[in-house]
Amino acid sequence: MFSKYGDHKYFKKYIKKRYGNIRWLTLAKREEKIKQIVFDHSKLEIKRMLRAAQNSIDEDNNHQPFFLVPFTIITSMVTLISSVWINYTNNTVNNISQVSLKLFEKKIEKEIEPSDINEIIESLSMYGPYQGNIKVLLWIFNIVLVGFFIYFFIRAWNSSYRYNVKALMEDCLDVYDEVKTKQILEIK
């Protein structure tokens, strides 16, 4: 049996359960859905559903800044972490430079073998830390980017459904009297 209007808490779920999908309908199917809704509901119920759809859209738009705050915080943290890592890397490179200068001074003074100096410098190479820092930053950036796009598409999907319901209810109100008149004439 069909679900009843008064039995549901959320009108969007009621419409989806009772009338099926209302997205991507052809014009003929949309007109059919409009007639079904008008036949099944009073003008007052349709106005209430329209008002509920508008309230849902307004509420969603009012909460939008609060949902963007976590992404702002995350991007700020990525900037902060990358600054700290870059500072750490620069300090390490400076320390290595100072060590290598001291080694060269000692080489001049004591004649250290060039192969020993090359081994020491290669052991102090910063290629690994640079590569590690870049990988971590890329992972964090990718996670934030993927999270943002998932969030964006879910919000866009839900928002488009709200607007579809609102447009459908407005169309129902526009043709309500005409459809009801035809229904009465068909009964006679």
Rank of each mutant, 00 (worst) to 15 (best):
D174P: 00
V175D: 06
Y10P: 01
T181E: 14
M1W: 08
T89Q: 13
L137M: 13
L185E: 14
K182T: 01
T79L: 09
A28E: 01
L68E: 08
I73A: 11
K135D: 06
I121S: 08
D116G: 05
P65Y: 04
F149V: 05
D116K: 12
D58L: 06
L103G: 06
F39W: 08
L168I: 00
Y10W: 14
N61G: 05
L50W: 05
K180T: 02
I112C: 05
K188P: 08
V144Y: 06
E31N: 15
F148I: 01
D58A: 11
I121L: 11
I57M: 02
L25D: 00
E111F: 07
N94M: 08
Y5E: 09
K107D: 15
D60G: 09
L145Q: 11
T72Y: 05
I74W: 05
P70K: 08
F148R: 01
S125C: 15
V144K: 06
G20K: 02
T181L: 14
L101P: 00
A53H: 02
A167Q: 08
K47A: 09
K106L: 11
Y161C: 00
C172Y: 03
G128A: 15
V165H: 00
I34Y: 00
F153S: 10
K17D: 15
N118F: 05
F153L: 10
E109G: 07
Y10E: 14
R51I: 05
L80Y: 14
E170H: 03
K35I: 06
F149E: 04
K35P: 01
V175S: 07
V179Y: 05
I134M: 14
G128P: 05
G147M: 10
K106R: 07
D171L: 10
Q183I: 07
D60E: 12
M169N: 04
D40V: 06
G128I: 14
V93E: 13
K29D: 10
I81V: 14
F71P: 03
K13V: 11
W157K: 02
I86V: 12
I184P: 04
Y19K: 04
Q131H: 13
D174S: 13
F152I: 04
I15H: 00
I73H: 03
D60N: 11
L185I: 13
R23D: 01
L145N: 13
E31M: 13
Y127K: 15
R162Q: 15
G128L: 13
P114S: 12
W139G: 09
D171I: 03
I15K: 01
D7P: 03
N90E: 15
Y10D: 15
S115T: 10
S159W: 04
N90L: 15
K110N: 09
Q183C: 07
N62L: 09
N164V: 01
Q36F: 01
